[in-house]
């Protein structure tokens, strides 16, 4: 009898008093971590994001002139160096794009793919790994005295290859590193190397749901020529619906990889740094929902 009462007591305690207990809690199942960054660029550097499937993203990367002349040219605003970028998300892992820069009248074709995705939860895969490559085509008219370029189209080409390895630590902090190889088919002097290795670090600190502070920095491996400066940028993201607006200060004039990683020359102390902005707009081919549903 003693046991009987005890058993009833236990049953009452164990009984599913709360209907919610009937739901298995499988919300812990790992899912891909989304929105590590607002945009596909951190500032200059490639972020862990690509346009979502069936989404066209058009971006204008605008860099003003150097701020060194102060109010005379309103901190460089009379001058502009632009890159247009059109990118399309084919799947949630693959995007292709094309860009065109003022700097050296360079076209670039790019591929950016998510090889591994960070998964949520303690058991999830801890980082995302992306592969980025581009082919740059310098289309500037070259003088007759520049026979190397005139002679072969191949001399106009350059390549960038990157792995982007990063982690969204929480809703606030995302960090990534970018081992980078840049290959130029034609170099200015024979002392210059065709293959340049560097490593980038980049991150964002999200202050509100729609605002974050971002930065990136590239550290070269091996020797560079005298004018070379390590490329850096600091900026902020402002998101409004389908737009991401990024405002920055950087020491690089161009917005393709070869330019902001290997051709940055600006020095903060001398004022040869540039204000700029990226503005992106997305267009969904899937369309928004028609009013007739």
């Amino acid at each position: 009898m003693k046991y009987f009462l005890l058993f009833i007591l236990l049953s009452v305690i164990n009984g599913q008093d709360d209907l919610l207990d009937y739901f298995d809690d499988d919300s812990e199942a790992p899912v891909p971590v989304e929105a590590a960054f607002k945009g596909t660029r951190v500032v200059n550097a490639q972020s862990l994001e690509i346009p979502r499937p069936q989404i066209f993203q058009f971006m204008i990367q605008h860099r003003f002139g150097a701020i060194e002349n102060g109010f005379y040219d309103l901190f460089g605003m009379d001058d502009a160096s632009i890159r247009f970028d059109l990118q399309y998300g084919f799947t949630d892992r693959l995007s292709l794009g094309i860009g065109r820069s003022t700097l050296n009248k360079t076209y670039d074709l790019l591929v950016k793919a998510k090889l591994l995705r960070q998964m949520s939860g303690p058991k999830g895969f801890p980082v995302s790994v992306l592969w980025f490559s581009n082919l740059g085509i310098n289309t500037q008219r070259k003088a007759e005295s520049d026979p190397a370029v005139k002679d072969a189209f191949a001399n106009r080409l350059s390549y960038a290859h990157q792995f982007i390895i990063g982690r969204k630590f929480n809703n606030i902090l995302t960090l990534e590193i970018l081992p980078t190889l840049i290959h130029r088919n034609l170099v200015p002097t024979k002392d210059d190397k065709h293959d340049l290795l560097s490593i980038g670090v980049a991150g964002r600190w999200k202050l509100t749901n729609r605002f974050s502070i971002n930065s990136d920095y590239f550290l070269p491996s091996g020797k560079r020529d005298g004018n070379f400066q390590n490329g850096w940028a600091i900026g902020m993201d402002i998101e409004t619906g389908g737009h991401v607006f990024q405002i920055m200060l950087t020491n690089a004039r161009g917005s393709y990889e070869g330019a902001y990683i290997e051709e940055a020359t600006g020095k903060l102390a001398e004022g040869t740094v540039y204000l700029g902005f990226n503005i992106s707009r997305v267009f969904s081919l899937a369309g928004s929902d028609s009013p007739r549903w």
Partner: peptide, 26 residues
Amino acid sequence: GELAFQAPIRGFMFKNALMQEHFNEN
């Protein structure tokens, strides 16, 4: 007659993937 519902927010599927991201994130 007691009743309970539970819906995972990430289970909401949108046609526009970016909207879905904003729905969850923002």
